[in-house]
Amino acid sequence: MTLESSNKIIAAGIKETTEKYGCKKEKLLQILEDLNKEFGYLSEFVLLEVSKNLDMPHSQIYGVASFYSFLNTQPKGKYIVRLCKTISCSLAGKKKIANALENELGIRFGETTPDGKFSLMFTNCIGMCNQGPAMLINDDVYYNLDPEKAVEIIESYE
């Protein structure tokens, strides 16, 4: 498949998504979330297509996409591991979990594994304060972690 034809397919998919929301400008965030999930991140091409479909300036769309922590404008791993670093999880020992994850995956926080599988990120309070340390892997939440448990969970992801 040529680059042009695969771009066409992606563009058609993006058009469908924006039409699903009635091509309404106020639905931009929901559209970006759907596309972020589908493509793993919001590339220039994706944002330009959204801009065309919504008839909105692309600078504004980039302004929105870059504001939110859960929208990625750079490629990320297939699984994004978000470890909570706010106070209650911090008190409960998130540092040990952080070390274990970094050792296991061989990357530091903020990086992505070379095989593109995992991205490690810190995140702020995810509402698991009584059961910390806690983390999100994509949409799944894990809590009451200890270093071994955390690594087990990582390994369970194909």
Partner: peptide, 25 residues
């Protein structure tokens, strides 16, 4: 149901509304 996208500031009512309108929170 309208999902946020990871911004604590969107808990403030007017920032929340801005986010609902597809803008920066």
């Amino acid at each position: 149901i309208h999902l946020g996208a990871g911004a604590y500031v969107c808990g403030e009512e007017t920032a929340l509304i801005e986010s609902l309108e597809g803008k920066r929170g």
